[in-house]
């Protein structure tokens, strides 16, 4: 994946955590996802269309999802309920929107978020776009971003 694109998503993620949770989220080394690759337990996904297409997903272990949403909303959550899913979807939405600003040349539109819950579920892409996984670490737990984005053939 284009380094500028990757950096945009990493910066948007760090900005969300620093602004709304007052927590530093540090990105590790990105790697290409080789399937089947189990993700974590709660994932928020956003699709992109425009001059490029693809998606971004943020995936948390259950305990990290609960801690992240509790810190963001200011309420302690003990179960992955409707509110936690809603918040994880909103987190994906804010990251996608933040990255989109830096990728104006792609004229991206973002979908409404979707959330997947299930222990060790697999996010499997049916497209041929390579998926880049970015691990993040924070003081309240680790999570990953899964990114796939590619310019449409007619604009390459």
């Amino acid at each position: 994946m284009d380094k500028k694109w990757l950096d945009s998503f990493i910066a948007a993620t760090a900005r969300l955590f620093s602004t709304m949770l007052s927590i530093e989220a540090t990105a590790g080394t990105p790697r290409i996802k080789i399937e089947p690759f189990p993700t974590f337990d709660v994932s928020g996904l956003i699709g992109f269309s425009g001059l490029a297409q693809g998606s971004v997903a943020i995936s948390f272990p259950r305990e990290t999802a609960l801690k992240v949403v509790s810190a963001m909303v200011g309420v302690t959550y003990a179960d992955v309920d409707r509110d936690v899913c809603d918040a994880v979807g909103e987190i994906a939405n804010i990251i996608a929107g933040g990255a989109k600003k830096d990728l104006a040349e792609l004229k991206l539109s973002i979908s409404l978020p979707q959330v997947v819950v299930g222990k060790g579920h697999i996010l499997s892409s049916i497209s041929t776009i390579p998926v880049t996984v970015v691990p993040f670490s924070t003081s309240i737990g680790d999570f990953v971003l899964e990114l796939c984005l590619r310019k449409n053939r007619e604009v390459v």
Binding site: V73, D83, D86, A87, L112
Partner: peptide
Amino acid sequence: DDSSTMRRIQKN
């Protein structure tokens, strides 16, 4: 806002 948790954050 369609996100109930975002409304909660903003309302607080």
